[in-house]
Design a protein around this nucleic acid. Structure first.
Lengths: 164, 164
DNA sequence: TATGAAATTCCCTAAAC
DNA sequence: GTTTAGGGAATTTCATA
């Protein structure tokens, strides 16, 4: 039941900054860090979850699983809303697509693909982009090395410097 | 203390697939899903954590926080290992850099930047790429819309289709 | 409306086997 | 790997400002 997200105060920003780095912290520890009781922290966190603002996931080390990552930039054939919708649905449904961003400028989309090897990667990219008529051009770039890995978003608390 | 990751069996693959989607699942629920006792699940999970294979984080919805994302592709001036090391350290240390990948081909790096607005974004990109002598060229692409968002890596269990 | 404190329930953890 | 037992955390309730 995703309700609409409520406005966030300073407590929220600081909690979200901490949770983005480590979601295993206890309510007591979080409360001590921000100056709130465990109950208050608990209430706020369940609000984040039910509003759809936050979800908690495990992030795996790509190097440890030696999977093949690739970045693909894509330009569509025509500026048709219909075709964009179909493309986006395909991206969301493909399990190998990690991330997909619509871009400003000459390239319409950036797509990050995670596969189990170069052969699998080629197969997935062909299926997703080659066998589709509404794609004008796409460039596949294999990832040699992951330098930094995460999805942290900036909050006022992060800007102010909560970093340990 | 990060020990070296042990080889993974089918139980591990299935657990990791589930945890990548929802890290709040209880040990009992995970155990029921894969056919293991909660204690066995617990031991495996602590192994993932201590080996550095897995970390648990909160992922926030970029739309809800209306932050500005940008993708930057970068080509270095010369193929000097030293300069690459310095660049990578800078990427890792910059809080606005979400992800950084070294690429094969004409572009050396893909960098994903998360900022609080276009002004902040321009400032960050200038600081990270413009004011640096060893960068030959970089292209900044503002993100219009986030179509898909995640860091899920493929495991044999995911390929086999654990998806609900 | 949101907080803090107490009470309950449930889960995580670490034994033992 | 499973079962057991204990401590600890998450969750609910309640009184309050």
């Amino acid at each position: 039941m995703p309700r609409r997200p409520p406005p966030l105060d300073d407590f929220d920003h600081r909690l979200l900054a901490l949770l983005q780095r480590d979601a295993t912290a206890t309510l007591t520890a979080l409360g001590d860090a921000v100056g709130l009781s465990p109950s208050a922290v608990q209430r706020r966190i369940s609000r984040y979850r039910s509003s759809g603002l936050m979800r908690q996931v495990a992030v795996l080390d790509p190097a440890a699983l030696d999977c093949t990552l690739a970045a693909v930039w894509v330009t569509m054939e025509r500026e048709s809303a219909q075709r964009h919708t179909a493309f986006r649905t395909r991206m969301r449904e493909a399990p190998e697509v990690q991330q997909c961003y619509e871009l400003a400028g000459e390239w319409d989309y950036l797509v990050l693909v995670a596969t189990t090897g170069v052969a699998h990667c080629r197969q997935v990219v062909d299926r997703l982009f080659l066998d589709e008529g509404n794609i004008r051009r796409y460039d596949t770039h294999l990832v040699f090395d992951v330098v930094k890995h995460g999805l942290e978003l900036p909050t006022p608390a992060i800007r102010a410097g909560v970093t340990p």
